[in-house]
């Protein structure tokens, strides 16, 4: 059985770093079914949550294709191995060490849509750690808006290996991040299948972010509100939502929306959400009124 060894560099969460991840995916894809893959971390200083979920999903993809992933622990610098032990990634990959609480939001794998587990993680492992000061109602609202990411991933992507999430609290940057990855078909390819091949990656992402547009299965009627709710949420909270999918990129923050083509594609979607974590209450505007619903 063939073995491929990949060098994993330091991976931050910029667009350049995403390109590194996409190239790693391409190397694995080119290696073909049944290939064992070793991950060497000798040149890696740290991994952001986007890299953690990506590598976790990649490991399961390699297994799904009949190969074996192997993370070369001996090549890891201490801070890298400590991070992967703390957030539970190492435990999920077979290490005996139980994860512990720190600034990490635990690494999670969802093979199917387990809504209660997803909400539990969002409310207790991400929002409920005391890093943001929010009311019970607001926590439920944020959990609902964030859960759209997971529901979208299962409904849209047809992912064969599930959905992966992980996050981090950065006290110095006063930032709370969450990354969610799947290796489904990707948003642009679904938009092209449904709307026509002429869509470039950026145009496909723009289409998907337009209220009312959806590539989800419409067996139960109209769709297309999830990304809109998410957009609204990050804008109100001065956060940032970034989605890398196939060959398209979308970035939403309080200053606007940006859609671009990506030079390197991968089959799947990686979502990154960053919230400003400064102990201020997030606004919860009320729309209670007496207007009829329909």
């Amino acid at each position: 059985m063939a073995t491929l060894t990949l060098q994993i560099p330091t991976i931050n969460d910029s667009r350049l770093d995403f390109t590194v991840l996409a190239k790693i995916w391409q190397d694995v894809a080119k290696a073909g079914n049944g290939t064992n893959v070793n991950f060497n971390f000798s040149s890696c200083g740290f991994l952001r949550p986007n890299a953690v979920v990506f590598l976790g999903a990649l490991a399961r993809l390699i297994q799904h294709r009949g190969g074996a992933p192997r993370f070369l622990v001996d090549t890891m610098q201490s801070q890298v191995s400590a991070n992967l032990l703390q957030n539970g990634f190492a435990y999920a990959m077979g290490d005996d060490t139980q994860p512990w609480q720190g600034n990490s939001i635990p690494y999670r794998e969802y093979s199917q849509i387990d809504k209660n587990a997803i909400v539990y993680s969002l409310k207790n492992e991400w929002l409920g750690r005391g890093w943001v000061n929010i009311s019970h109602d607001l926590m439920n609202e944020i959990a609902g808006r964030m859960s759209e990411i997971y529901v979208n991933a299962f409904d849209h992507s047809l992912t064969p290996i599930g959905v992966y999430s992980c996050g981090q609290h950065f006290p110095n940057r006063r930032e709370l991040t969450l990354a969610v990855a799947d290796f489904g078909v990707g948003i642009p390819s679904k938009v092209r299948f449904q709307e026509g091949e002429a869509f470039a990656g950026a145009d496909a992402m723009r289409w998907a972010f337009t209220r009312g547009n959806s590539t989800a299965r419409q067996i139960h009627g109209p769709r297309g509100m999830g990304l809109d709710l998410l957009k609204e949420f990050v804008r109100v909270n001065r956060g940032r939502l970034e989605i890398y999918s196939h060959d398209g990129y979308a970035c939403i923050d309080s200053t606007g929306e940006m859609y671009e083509n990506l030079p390197v594609f991968f089959e799947g979607t990686l979502v990154q959400v960053r919230l400003v974590c400064d102990n201020k209450l997030y606004l919860l505007s009320s729309e209670i009124d007496s207007l009829a619903f329909f």
Partner: peptide
Amino acid sequence: LNNHLKFEHLSDFGIRVLRRVIDNAKEYY
């Protein structure tokens, strides 16, 4: 539906999502 379907004890956020969904569904249909 306005006359026959009643919603009780729905949270503020639930109301907001429901209104968006209904507006979207009306356009869709």
